[in-house]
Design a binder for these strands. Sequence first.
DNA 1: ATTGCTGTGTAGAACGTTCTCCATTGTTAG
DNA 2: CTAACAATGGAGAACGTTCTACACAGCAAT
Lengths: 336, 336
Amino acid sequence: MTSGRVTIADVARRAGVSTAAVSKVVRGAYGVSAEMQAKVTQAIDELGYRPHAAARALRGRTYTLGVMLSDTRNPFFPDIIEGVTGRLGDTEYQVLLGPGGIEPKTQARMTDAMIDRSMDGLILISPVMSDAELAAIATAIPIVVVGRHGGAAAYDAVVDDDVMGAGLVVDHLVGLGHTRIAHITHLERARAQGLPHTVRAEGYRQAMRAHGLADDVLATSFTEEGGFEGARELLARDDRPTAIFAGADIAALGVLRAADEAGLSVPEDLSVAGYDNIGIASLKRISLTSVDQDGHVIGATAARLLVERIEGRSRSVTSSVSPTLIVRGTTGPPRR
Amino acid sequence: MTSGRVTIADVARRAGVSTAAVSKVVRGAYGVSAEMQAKVTQAIDELGYRPHAAARALRGRTYTLGVMLSDTRNPFFPDIIEGVTGRLGDTEYQVLLGPGGIEPKTQARMTDAMIDRSMDGLILISPVMSDAELAAIATAIPIVVVGRHGGAAAYDAVVDDDVMGAGLVVDHLVGLGHTRIAHITHLERARAQGLPHTVRAEGYRQAMRAHGLADDVLATSFTEEGGFEGARELLARDDRPTAIFAGADIAALGVLRAADEAGLSVPEDLSVAGYDNIGIASLKRISLTSVDQDGHVIGATAARLLVERIEGRSRSVTSSVSPTLIVRGTTGPPRR
DNA sequence: ATTGCTGTGTAGAACGTTCTCCATTGTTAG
DNA sequence: CTAACAATGGAGAACGTTCTACACAGCAAT
């Protein structure tokens, strides 16, 4: 132990072979006899050798995949991450997460940082960047974009079918007898296209139109406060809606608070639905009707596509995951 | 652009100097004239050069800090991470997160992976490993351990003062007139010492004793279900407690559900308090009394200690962060 | 016996940095 | 005018891998 770290040279010396041979064994490359395989594996075990990723990076793979998180606070990230790591659990790949923040600039910085750390591929979750920027990144490294609709040719994409999800909610509410159904969406300053909230709002409009109903979209923000403010405005109207569909559960929680404060009981006076089916939506005290996008499947799919891409596929793929509606206690027939 | 990536050699050529000189400028090392500085900086900007972390790793620093997450789902991780990144925002360091899972084995694997990727230092959040393992890791790389009490000499530690936090809750409840106060804690299978829940339970016992009251600890798990089951058992007793202090908010939510199902109103029939002050605790519909440990401060402190350690400090430090009690609607005087 | 494979092992050059000397210059002291 | 020294720039050896050549053996086909 000269310097603490066991290198490939130490293993080679111990096994009485060349470093090149050890490298072959480690990588499972072609041209190794069974005997060589055994000798080297034994030496590796005895010495506790682990390949040094940085050194590897200089020539070949690094076996590291990065996941850029746009907003650490987003409650369904854990599901996606679990899906990713679950899928990769039995491979040699390791997953590292990069907190990218919500600004395009900080996200770009994080993406660069991950490229500089020579990761083999990147999964970008709901990135807030222009399509051009994404395409540029895709030339430097294989990427899979999660949560952006209209994926380009340069990269793979995994999306929740947000049009369908919004449709499920509207159909459900209309089925209960609602006609005045409002939608609260997120007001985005960044010039990014195909973000989930945009598509959800569009899906809502389509579904309302399909039922011959007038749409009513209010843009605040996907926060508890945003939902609260939006609902307060909607509920102050003369012909106030009998149902509010918030584009995100966190906003729906704000809607519930506004209903409480206005003395309206849910779902008798007001039905409320959200999107994302975050963990607390299922708590008895909340019991929020919501659209569930299977984060586990989304993450696993993204991981699969990325590995495929890294290992050679060149044709680009967009995978759409179907959401399901989870009906709970916050929606019911309108009081007539 | 031979291979896509701009290297230090490209910059050197452009500026008409040696690679060694460029390296000096990049690192801000000693021995660079103002003129050299200007020339090189210009060339860097023109070419858009960014240092290649893997290559750096082979000799010096990598300017990457790792944060090992023990449970991605833990709702106060975002605060800690924000604290870490906030502190590091204006430095050259980048933060990468490693989802370590809840098993000692997977956590060890992730830690190794981060070491193999030659990070400069690691922050381990609530690691479930033996002290010996932690000490072993600390010999390989500077680490800061967050959330483990009784930190060793080999590394720095940041802890929430959980004894104090538990004391705050008990004092508050006793002040309201409660005498039968039960505590729900987490049953840990791993042989790790000084975990927060253990210390919280101990703090609870100490505080009860100080008030001359009998303690009553029930170990289930820190999940919604664990809180529910625990509360159900406690509430079925003849002399059921008038207050339940759950060692984690998530469990407190389960306690609330159990109270609902038992037809008990909160706080009249049962006071409930939690720990962690997770985001939804403040929602009107929940309004949970809880202990707030300032994750932001914890994260920022951990980052500071780690950087200090990397940059030379050898004496080890343990920093204790004081929690505060946030009184909300779930606690009140017992019905007499 | 020669030729041409195929299968296995090795030498040694990358990869992009940092870092330890060393060379050169200019400046100051004697 | 020389000696000593400080300040600056550069040469070149690491760092731990991978990977392209190539060497050598054994064997089958000529």
